[in-house]
Design a binder for these strands. Structure first.
Lengths: 234, 234
DNA sequence: TTCCGTCATTTTGTATGCAATTCGAAGAAA
DNA sequence: TTTCTTCGAATTGCATACAAAATGACGGAA
């Protein structure tokens, strides 16, 4: 299992961080779940101090929401945040693609191909398949050797899981494996523009197909407005 | 003084975070400075617990380096990290420009114009002028209403100060005020491509002019070579 | 019944204490 | 002098204690 950069450090706080992050990404903890410090600490055999540190980290990564005096919960991004997030993600992944296009080494190509194989193999199981799809993108980012780029792509990919969990259509095969394969081909061939276009399409299809409600979070007033009209109360 | 988004929350930990961040950006704490938990806490009248939390936050933002068992210090990014950072920054600021081009409201235009005036006025004082130049970019990002984009641009701009502090040429007027003015004009006119090009040039000039050593960190031998020649020891 | 206020319980906010590690200086050996 | 060793002081890692705030349940008044 590929360890990502935030795993560095042997501290137990990092371990807590890793466990929680994993649980969130696996949707074992779904958006909105409460994250009480002491029950987590009790379960993991550490004090609240360490749990707190992990929660602070997670909140900085946008995976957890920290409400003062009211505890932490798994983040529940709005739909608009979701769309914006994918916009940001596109900007960064575009840089990834431009950086890598035509510059992949033999080893990198092999690693990516192997990863795609793994995706193919896991196609049937939902949870692993989602995780692998995300890891393909972080793997690409990793290869740029650009630390800030890696970090941000990582974060955004992670948060994308949250968005998909909240608003994604069940049937949207998150990242079609074949699209990854096509992208890899273009990258190898150094066809930068085509690769960028492919990536754009790839991400775009998630936002438009999977991320329905075409616009605006309907807030309570908007929702009620419809009913009001129906009742002649407008 | 514009408060940025990380100021949210009334907690005292945030206050510590804010103080340290400010000190770092003002270069009152320069890259490499040790940041001992208890002396900071003592000075600020809080316990180590809160200082620790602030340091964790700062480390996630890349402003502080956290070495296990060895304490925290103000981050000292390498030159390569610096170049990569500006690459990433460009990718994101491009999105900012594309989002804003031709869509600025009257109020936003006024705010930006006012900011540019302030930059002009502060041109002589070094510290405020550097800060204002950065704030112009975060102000733009803010106007996109894209939360992740705002957060990342903020972080990147902050870290840019570190890079400039370490590797910047003294004389490079970090961000020429006139370039900001030109950019604003293009944004108002909705000339997206020209605006993007301007932004690219703006950031590029920082990396190539201010961020000298065109490539590779000069190692100890290169550095000594210059002195050797001067002493007739070559 | 419904609404509101009070109090017990739970959970967070912060300080502090103790063990473990690192750092640095003084001193011994080469 | 230089280098190694050892020991004490300073600093971090982590747990725990206690205060403050929120949550929720119970009971009384409308």
């Amino acid at each position: 299992m590929a360890k990502n950069e935030s795993d560095r450090g042997s501290g137990r706080a990092q371990a807590v961080h890793r466990v929680l992050k994993r649980a969130i990404l696996d949707q074992a903890l779904s958006p909105g779940s409460k994250l009480p410090e002491d029950s987590i600490g009790e379960r993991l055999g550490v004090s609240r101090t360490l749990v707190r540190e992990a929660l602070v980290r997670l909140s900085q990564e946008g995976l957890v929401e920290l409400r003062p005096n009211k505890g932490a919960m798994v983040a529940r991004p709005t739909l608009e945040e979701g769309r914006n997030l994918f916009l940001t993600r596109m900007a960064l992944e575009r840089l990834v693609v431009e950086t890598l296009s035509g510059k992949l080494t033999r080893e990198q190509i092999d690693a990516l191909a192997a990863h795609i194989e793994a995706e193919e193999a896991a196609k049937k199981e939902r949870a692993p398949s989602i995780r692998l799809a995300g890891e393909f993108h972080t793997l690409l980012a990793q290869m740029t050797n650009n630390i800030s780029l890696m970090r941000y792509v990582n974060e955004l990919v992670a948060r994308s899981s949250l968005i998909l969990a909240l608003y994604g259509r069940p049937h949207s095969s998150e990242c079609a494996v074949s699209e990854h394969r096509d992208l890899l081909d273009k990258l190898i061939a150094g066809k930068t523009e085509e690769a960028v276009a492919l990536m754009a399409h790839h991400l775009d299809s998630v936002t438009t197909r999977a991320l329905l409600p075409p616009d605006g979070d309907r807030n309570i007033k908007e929702v009620l407005a419809a009913y009001a009209v129906a009742e002649g109360l407008a």
